[in-house]
Design a protein around this nucleic acid. Sequence first.
DNA 1: TTTCTCACA
DNA 2: TGTGAGAA
Length: 142
Amino acid sequence: MPRRSPRPGKGETVAATYGIADLAREFDVTTRTLRFYEDEGLIAPERQGQKRIFSARDRVRLKLILRGKRLGFSIGEIREIINLYDAPPGEVGQIRFFLDKIRERRAALERQRDDIAATLDELADVEARCTTQLRDLGKRHS
DNA sequence: TTTCTCACA
DNA sequence: TGTGAGAA
């Protein structure tokens, strides 16, 4: 649960903030991971003295980061993508950029799939040769 | 509890 | 792409 600013005045905006442990709990990551993401420039929580104060906005970014991770994007790619959300919203260029990223990822996965298929074929070949060899050796001794 | 740094997989 | 330890 978010902590709220202490004693907000009448009509004052109550900005929800979160401690590092709050977010770690909520998203089931370690506090260590959150500091790591900050080092990588994925999030930029404010500081109150030494402590990190995460805003609702940081929370949203974290959500995006974790989604990107599930999609198989690298830290660098995630950084590029979520930084788009800072700029003016709904830019056509941003959507195109995101589409590019998706297509790149799909292409990479397809390449991997083809590599795996090729490797499986080669393994089958080797296996067949070995089996034959073994059988021939057996004949010779009988 | 949280911070940082260094080492490690 | 993270984790663990140690010290402040």
